[in-house]
């Protein structure tokens, strides 16, 4: 209650929605203490942008406020549930996540900011979801979660919490480079019968309205995202599927090599923004 009042006192300004309505000027501070960078210079390898903005900067003030206090952020119900999962023994090895990793708020600090990343032992680029499932099957000897399931997004959200406010910092070269290049090519491919690429909407037209939707840069520093539209946490690759489907295209499956590549590339376009997950969007 006190915190909400503070947020209101700071004052979120509704941007006039006449014609051009770029990112607004509001600043994101969560629980009155975690300052999150929502605007930064674009990384040098992003040719089409000079500035990068979090999707938070394009949402209505009401939606923005909901993310500014964990008591108001509906994603925290899932975070609480995942905390119980983290501490609970499951699977044939008789272990919980905590058996090896201890306190998630300590051991997972900074982890969310660097994913997807190269796993040397496996010789592959891993998303956070892939790593969670790897620990489930290899270390817990338990069943993997479905890639975009509620349990998966809840665990991703929990692991993201201790990284909030840290700058996204995924590697783009070295062993991940060819995967990154693949993701970049996908980002500029005009898929489907509407022939629209991610860049057509999120690079060329962010700030514009497409019907009722205020286009952001499609950044993923906020994932998993609680959407008011479907009242649940949404996995990042679920969102990719939705955007590709909307171009009247055949999408890719969640967890596919193509989407891992796309996730790495899109994450890298947000290098320098603060981790916001679990965030709130409409």
């Amino acid at each position: 209650m006190l915190r909400t009042t503070t947020a209101l006192a700071v004052g979120l300004i509704a941007t006039a929605t006449l014609g051009w309505a770029d990112a607004d000027e509001n600043e994101l501070v969560v629980n009155g203490e975690i300052e999150i960078t929502t605007h930064a210079p674009a990384p040098a390898y992003v040719d089409g942008l000079t500035e990068i903005y979090s999707g938070w900067r394009f949402r209505e003030p009401d939606t923005q406020l909901t993310q500014m206090d964990d008591f108001d952020n509906p994603a925290f119900l899932a975070v609480d549930a995942a905390q119980i999962t983290w501490d609970t023994v499951e699977g044939e090895a008789g272990k919980s996540c905590a058996s090896c990793h201890g306190d998630v708020m300590e051991s997972m600090k900074g982890v969310r900011a660097t994913y997807p990343k190269w796993n040397e032992t496996a010789g592959e680029v891993r998303t956070l979801a892939m790593q969670i499932n790897d620990c489930r099957t290899e270390n817990l000897k338990a069943e993997p979660y479905d890639y975009t399931s509620g349990k998966m997004t809840a665990m991703e959200a929990l692991i993201s919490v201790p990284s909030r406010g840290m700058p996204v910092n995924v590697a783009v070269d070295g062993p991940v480079q060819s995967t990154w290049e693949q993701g970049k090519e996908m980002y500029y491919t005009r898929y489907g019968q509407l022939e629209l690429s991610c860049a057509n909407c999120h690079e060329d037209n962010y700030g514009n309205y497409i019907r009722a939707d205020h286009l952001s840069q499609g950044q993923i520093n906020g994932f998993p995202v609680y959407r008011l539209k479907n009242t649940k946490l949404n996995q990042v690759q679920d969102r990719f599927q939705g955007c590709i489907r909307d171009t009247r295209a055949e999408t890719f499956s969640a967890g596919s090599p193509e989407f891992v590549a796309l996730e790495l590339y899109v994450a890298s376009r947000g290098n320098g923004l603060g981790v916001e997950a679990p965030s709130v969007r409409n």
Binding site: T189, R190, Y191, G192, Q193, L194, E195, L196, N200, D204, N205, Q241, I244, R245, D246, T247, R248, A249, E250, T251
Partner: peptide
């Protein structure tokens, strides 16, 4: 241009079955 072509049936990349996300 970003504007879709409304009277065309070929030359698409991964065309879908309308908005189902499945292949046409």
């Amino acid at each position: 241009t970003i504007m879709p072509s409304f009277y065309k049936t070929a030359g698409y990349i991964r065309p879908g079955d309308e908005f189902s996300g499945k292949a046409a």
